[in-house]
Design a binder for these strands. Structure first.
Length: 492
RNA sequence: GGCGCCUUCGUCAAGCGGUUAAGACACCGCCCUCUCACGGCGGGUUCAAGGGUUCGAAUCCCUUAGGCGUCACCA
């Protein structure tokens, strides 16, 4: 608890520090969200920092991609590569001089050393039992002469952290309490790589300190390397930030096994989800609740402003959470249902595809029918296809036991309905409702019995978004009658 | 394998020594209804196991099991 209280910064400053891979995993998005919400819930700052110290991994335009994605999710950094800030630059590859300076300082104080070992073949004593990591600490205690000689020869080197050989390191984590790891578990990790770039484990510490990050929110995969960071803070005499290690987001495979959410579980990128027609606000909302919950309410639908207000660290759960597409579907649907038809039409626009003039003019109406029937936008094309082209169908579709309908009976009903529909003057929902109910009444049949064959004849399918009246209206008079006449021919 | 973390319905979860163990999604049933949805009502399913501590344990302690993570010149 002392670290939590002892933090010297009054202002809450959190960061999201992705490497530029051109992909925003849902788990990363959640980490960013929590860091953002936590900062914002207390009026603090949220910083975006790009950790691009691995040249091999660099992806063009990835920084842009990250910023666009965060913006789509309404996560707006206060400081970052594009917005700048007092601690610029926010891209690590542009901060190499800084890391170099601090690494050398560590050498001076005896907490780090140059290692001239070959990258490919670390010099090892074959018989020696490995006691720490993968490196045998060969260069840990080179004599000054040896070092000079190597340097003079221009031998490339890395800088390694000199870990204590005994003792243990303890740090406080808000979620997990004190975590203690024996120093003998700690490798003399590389701080500065041969190419002059820092490693994550080094740059992260330097930047978090320099950028005055107060709370480090990141995944549990960093728990075991945190003692190395803590030691670095101690070497420099810096105050420790508060650590919060988040449990991972898991996925459930078809065989029931649970593992870290990955491609095999379906779409796992924020952008993949968007393309499927999940709304960014629904994704954010869902993801916020995946591993966090507001203790004081059962409310589940939150917009960003509400989340910023209500978010707090003690609602975070320390066990992994399984990503549930079912619930996301539901939540997405909740957002749809809360929209006006106009809004829905606008959001869904690209999923409607090319609509003819008639349907285009009725798009808002169509949207109204669709918005309660769709979990995600990419279901729309299949759902409205029948309005654009009449599907081929088996005449047996007309058979329906519950309504005691047969193809023969259907032919009767359809041929009875055609002339009446032809007489309809105003082809709108009100009039059609009236026309059809008059027809039903006169026929003495039940509504369902009348509607069934009409639906089949009009749509070629037994399930449609909306009822017969709605379909008649959407299709328009000409197309409706055309379809009924066509099917009647087939029935006779 | 060493080390570390985790463990309440199928899933997200509330719970903080005394509860009929909330709520939501999913599932099932009923109602509404021209189909499908929407909406309404109702239902089943949960404290990983074993030991303690205690008058009393999902809650505290220990052990076991399982899951996950980590042991890079990746982050």
């Amino acid at each position: 608890m002392k670290y939590l209280e002892g933090n010297f910064l009054n202002r809450i400053r959190t960061r999201f520090a992705p490497s530029p891979t051109g992909y925003m995993h849902i788990g990363n998005l959640r980490t960013a969200l929590y860091a953002y919400l936590f900062a914002k819930s207390s009026g603090g700052d949220f910083i975006l920092r790009i950790e691009d110290t691995d040249r091999a991994r660099y992806v063009a335009d990835a920084v842009d991609f990250i910023e666009r994605t965060l913006a789509a999710a309404k996560i707006i950094p206060d400081e970052g590569p594009h917005q700048g800030g007092n601690f610029a630059p926010y891209v690590q590859s542009e901060r190499m001089e800084i890391y170099k300076k601090y690494a050398e300082k560590l050498i001076e104080t005896g907490h780090a050393y140059r290692c001239f070992c070959d990258n490919e073949e670390p010099e090892e004593n074959p018989g020696e039992e490995k006691k720490f990591g993968g490196y045998n600490r060969h260069c840990r205690d080179l004599s000054p002469e040896e070092i000079e000689k190597n340097l003079a020869e221009g031998k490339p080197y890395v800088i390694r952290q000199k870990m204590p050989l005994a003792g243990e390191t303890t740090f406080f984590d808000v979620l997990h309490g004190n975590i203690t790891i024996s120093n003998t578990e700690l490798e003399d990790q590389v701080l500065l790589k041969r190419d002059g770039m820092p490693t994550y484990n080094f740059a992260n510490v330097i930047d978090d300190h320099l950028m005055e990050i107060s709370h480090i929110i990141r995944g549990t995969e960093f728990i075991t390397s945190t003692p190395k960071h803590v030691l670095l803070y101690e070497f420099f005499g810096w105050e420790l930030p508060t650590f919060i290690h988040l449990a991972p987001v898991m996925g459930k495979a078809a065989d029931g096994t649970v593992s870290k959410l990955s491609k095999r579980h379906g779409a796992t990128g924020f952008n993949d989800l968007i393309e499927m027609g999940y709304l960014p606000e629904a994704i954010t909302n869902y993801v916020a609740l995946l591993g966090w919950n507001p203790k004081t309410t059962n409310q589940e639908i939150f917009n960003m402003e509400e989340l910023m207000k209500i978010f707090s660290l003690d609602g975070l759960s320390k066990s992994p959470a399984v990503f549930d597409y079912n619930k996301l579907d539901w939540m997405n649907g909740e957002y749809f249902k809360n929209m006006t038809d106009e809004e829905f039409a606008e959001r869904a626009d690209k999923f409607f595809g090319e609509l003819d003039e008639n349907l285009t003019s009725k798009k808002i109406y169509l949207a109204g029918l669709l918005k309660t029937r769709v979990a995600k936008l990419n279901e729309i094309p299949d759902m409205i296809k029948f309005l654009q082209v009449m599907p081929a169908f088996d005449i047996e579709l007309y058979t329906n036991k519950r309504n005691k309908i047969t193809p023969e009976k259907s032919a009767e009903i359809i041929s009875g309905a055609i002339p009446i529909l032809e007489k309809a003057e105003n082809w709108n929902v009100d009039e059609l409702t009236k026309v059809i109910s008059d027809f039903t009444e006169k026929s003495g049949l039940k509504v369902g019995t009348i509607m069934w064959p009409l639906r089949i004849g009009l749509s070629g399918q037994k399930v449609t978004p909306g009822g017969v009246i709605e379909i008649l209206y959407l299709l328009g008079k000409e197309t409706s009658l055309q379809r009924l006449n066509d099917t009647l021919k087939n029935l006779q």
